[in-house]
């Protein structure tokens, strides 16, 4: 029985053309018993940054609240919103603080950073439970269905997908991967972040 698999759940983030998408399932279980089909694991950090927190349920809530604290302090003191890359390092240092008694979470970060010309640059990142960051160019995955997500994403992803196409790709990747994982599923939610808006959709998938 691994602590990382106790509650179940998976998250994936992908890069598109001037957009990013982040998606997760909605299951919370107690090992094989499913408890909730409504357990949020992906949270907004700013208008343009989302963070996904798959892993032990209690740490999902705690980390979400700790990040909220630190982001509020940052925003109020810096008088501006935090940038995605900076936030990724904040995640990393928060996790490393507990190097010898870690949070059982492998965060996934998706955001758009502002460029000097007024455009946006997509950024995704993932970390292990003690804060090792991975800035991938294509996609990042975490959770109990991570190997499945990796396989399907590798097969379906291509560069420069428009927001609508990115939505389809990430949705198919998530749905088919969690269907092969007993501990993930029971609902899914997808957020597509572009320069002007964030569109969040709940997916219709197998509820078994």
């Amino acid at each position: 029985m691994s602590i990382m698999e106790y509650n179940g759940g998976s998250v994936i983030a992908m890069v598109g053309k001037d957009c990013v998408a982040i998606a997760s399932d909605l299951r919370l279980g107690n090992q094989a018993l499913s408890i909730s089909s409504n357990f949020q694991k992906v949270f907004p950090v700013t208008d343009r940054i989302y963070v996904g927190l798959p892993g032990l349920g209690t740490d999902v809530t705690t980390l979400r609240e700790r990040f909220r604290y630190r982001i509020n302090m940052y925003t109020i003191k810096e008088e501006r919103e935090i940038e995605p890359e900076t936030f990724a390092h904040l995640v990393s240092s928060t996790l490393y603080e507990h190097r010898f008694g870690p949070y059982f979470i492998e965060p996934v970060i998706a955001g758009l950073s502002k460029t000097p010309s007024g455009g946006v640059k997509p950024l995704i990142a993932a970390a292990d439970l003690i804060g090792c960051l991975n800035f991938a160019k294509d996609f990042v995955v975490a959770g109990t269905a991570s190997t499945k997500l990796l396989g399907v994403a590798e097969g379906l992803w291509e560069p420069d997908l428009e927001p609508e196409d990115l939505f389809e790709t990430i949705s198919q990747t998530l749905l088919n991967s969690v269907d092969r994982d007993a501990f993930s599923g029971w609902g899914a939610v997808v957020h597509v972040i572009t320069k002007d808006s964030i569109i969040s959709r709940t997916l219709k998938g197998r509820m078994d």
Binding site: N72, T75, I76, K77, E78, E79, R80
Partner: peptide, 18 residues
Amino acid sequence: SGEGGYGGSGEKIFLLNS
């Protein structure tokens, strides 16, 4: 030249919390 508006750009008035 600071943007202000978030935490307060001044010397007297500050945002303590939302």
